[in-house]
Design a binder for these strands. Sequence first.
DNA 1: GTAACCTAATTACTTTATGTAAGTAAGTTT
DNA 2: AAACTTACTTACATAAAGTAATTAGGTTAC
Lengths: 102, 102
Amino acid sequence: MNETAICPRFEKAVGMLSKRWVSLIVFQLLNGPSRFCALEDSLPNISGRLLSERLKELEQEGIVRREVYPEMPVRIEYSLTDKGRALAPILAEIGTWSSNWL
Amino acid sequence: MNETAICPRFEKAVGMLSKRWVSLIVFQLLNGPSRFCALEDSLPNISGRLLSERLKELEQEGIVRREVYPEMPVRIEYSLTDKGRALAPILAEIGTWSSNWL
DNA sequence: GTAACCTAATTACTTTATGTAAGTAAGTTT
DNA sequence: AAACTTACTTACATAAAGTAATTAGGTTAC
């Protein structure tokens, strides 16, 4: 096709990170495991509908882990896998850029 | 509100980079200035409509520069500003992550 | 014990974003 | 002058995201 074609893995990564809320959800989970409603509160304008959808997608990608603690009442915690924590340098670079240029 | 509120500049940066095509357009322009149709060809599934829209938005953000060369025929080139080139480390980290984890 | 409350969703509906395809304007080549 | 090229724009269809109400477990307050 053309000489400057983009690597499909890079393209996939960009596709994932370009989905709305994904970066911010990962950013919050870098602080440690979190419950659904805590994430909802820390991302002020996300709807429960999308938070639920995104967490499910991120779980399928192996970036987020969902754990159910059968306490009374039940507690469900979301946390990052190794693959998810490995996204930290990307978010750190976004932080650097934003403080230098925005 | 809550202790884990997100920095608004960081949030803005994430918002920009989360818009579809933005990262890939910047990635292509890191190779050097490019014309509209060359960008269109290097991003196989983008429509002219959105490429035009995104370039206009990126120009307004000061990330992309549009230059008209009044040759015969006229040539219009898009390139990155310093602010745009400063995004390179973010894209490099995405590349690293994607080759390690995808 | 029942009314109100909490968490983690799901469903129905509206609005916005994106995709597709055709059209336009200025100019070039055949 | 008919066909082609570049850099768009416009009109319309489809997909994604936002909003709000509802549900299913269970808890606490009275």
